[in-house]
Amino acid sequence: MNNTRAYDPVSSHCAAEHSARFADRHVSRIMAALQDEKSLTAGEMAECTGMTVEQICRRLPELERRGHTQVVQFEGADLLRNGYRVWEAV
C-alpha cells in the first residue's frame, strides 16, 4: 500500500517503501506468535514478538481484513483478557 502522493518529496516515497518492509516483517512475527500460542492479546503478542503494543494494534485490523486473524468470540461478544481483545489465526 502506497500512502504517498505524486507530489510528495522523494524522502516521503523512500519512507513509505521502508514502512512497507517493516509491515511485512511485523505481519510475519504476529502470525508466527499466533501459530505457536493459538490465541493471544496484543499485549501478549508484544511480549512474544518484541514489538510494541502499538505496532501490533496497527497490524491486527489489516490481518483481520485479509482474513488471517479474528477476535475470539465468547457468548456473542469479543473475548477480553487484561483489557485487550483476544485474537486467533484463522
Score class of each variant (00 low, 15 high):
Glu88Ser: 02
Glu88Leu: 05
Glu88Cys: 05
Asn82Trp: 12
Gly76Lys: 01
Glu62Trp: 13
Gln55His: 11
Arg65Gln: 14
Tyr84Glu: 00
Gln55Cys: 14
Arg81Trp: 13
Asp78Ala: 14
Arg59Ser: 10
Gly76Glu: 05
Leu63Phe: 07
Pro61Ser: 08
Phe74Asn: 01
Arg58Val: 08
Met51Arg: 09
Gln70Met: 10
Glu75Trp: 08
Pro61Lys: 04
Cys57Thr: 07
Gln55Ala: 13
Thr69Cys: 06
Gly83Phe: 08
His68Phe: 03
Glu88Gln: 12
Thr69Met: 04
Asp78Leu: 08
Glu64Asn: 11
Leu63Met: 15
Glu64Asp: 15
Val71Pro: 02
Met51Val: 10
Arg66Phe: 08
Leu60Trp: 03
Leu63Arg: 07
Gln70Thr: 13
Gly76Trp: 04
Gly76Cys: 09
Val53Met: 12
Thr69Phe: 01
Leu60Cys: 04
Gly83Tyr: 12
Arg81Glu: 00
Gln55Trp: 07
Thr69Gly: 02
Leu63Lys: 08
Pro61Leu: 11
Gln70Pro: 04
Leu60Thr: 04
Phe74Lys: 01
Glu64Gln: 13
Tyr84Gly: 00
Arg66Tyr: 07
Gly76Leu: 09
Leu79Phe: 11
Ala89Leu: 07
Glu88Ile: 04
Arg65His: 13
Trp87Gly: 00
Ala77Glu: 13
Phe74Val: 02
Ala89Asn: 06
Asn82Lys: 15
Arg58Ala: 10
Val86Ile: 12
Glu54Ala: 15
Ala77Leu: 13
Arg81Lys: 15
Val71His: 06
Asn82His: 13
Val72Tyr: 06
Leu79Ser: 03
